[in-house]
């Protein structure tokens, strides 16, 4: 899977547009986009880590934000990033997943939160999924 997102213009914060062939891929690329912005410096020698998450939310857009918020929390508290996600359950209102990642020495940037502002997740006519997310930094 490739990292696929672009940074959009926003006065104060960080807005990204993410693409994916499937909903799962769009969620994963959103995660990679978010993590790149944290500018992590990996621990050396490498230390692996594994987590599990379970999320319930009202709809697909909201669950994308809640998914990212949950991972942002885990990432900041445990000082780690995740390079792979295995979805055990993937519905518009419920996600269960295993996260596989690496420990981080430090982050070069802080993301305060994932916002619901102008949030958009949709499938384009060419069947590609696209999401727009604003992070407060």
């Amino acid at each position: 899977m490739t990292k696929q997102y672009q940074i959009l213009e926003h006065r104060a914060d960080l807005k990204i547009r993410v693409f994916g062939k499937t909903k799962e891929e769009v969620f994963l690329n959103a995660l990679f986009g978010m993590q790149d912005c944290l500018r992590p410096e990996l621990k050396k020698p490498e230390e692996k880590t594994e987590r599990e998450i379970k999320i319930k939310s009202p709809d697909l857009s909201v669950i994308l934000v809640d998914f990212l918020s949950e991972i942002l929390y885990l990432s900041q508290v445990n000082k780690e990033i995740y390079n792979d996600v295995k979805f055990l359950k993937f519905l518009d209102t419920e996600i269960e997943a295993q996260l596989f990642g690496k420990k981080v020495e430090r982050f070069g940037e802080d993301i305060k939160a994932v916002t619901y502002h102008q949030l958009d997740v949709h499938q384009r006519e060419d069947n590609i999924w696209e999401a727009t997310i604003l992070f407060d930094i």
């Binding site: 939310s57 009202p58 909201v62 934000v65 809640d66 929390y73 305060k112 939160a113 994932v114 619901y116």
Partner: peptide
């Protein structure tokens, strides 16, 4: 503070 706001937004939207 960021997490407090995140938590309440998540709870309050529904």
């Amino acid at each position: 503070g960021h997490q407090v706001c995140t938590d309440y937004l998540r709870e309050f939207i529904p």
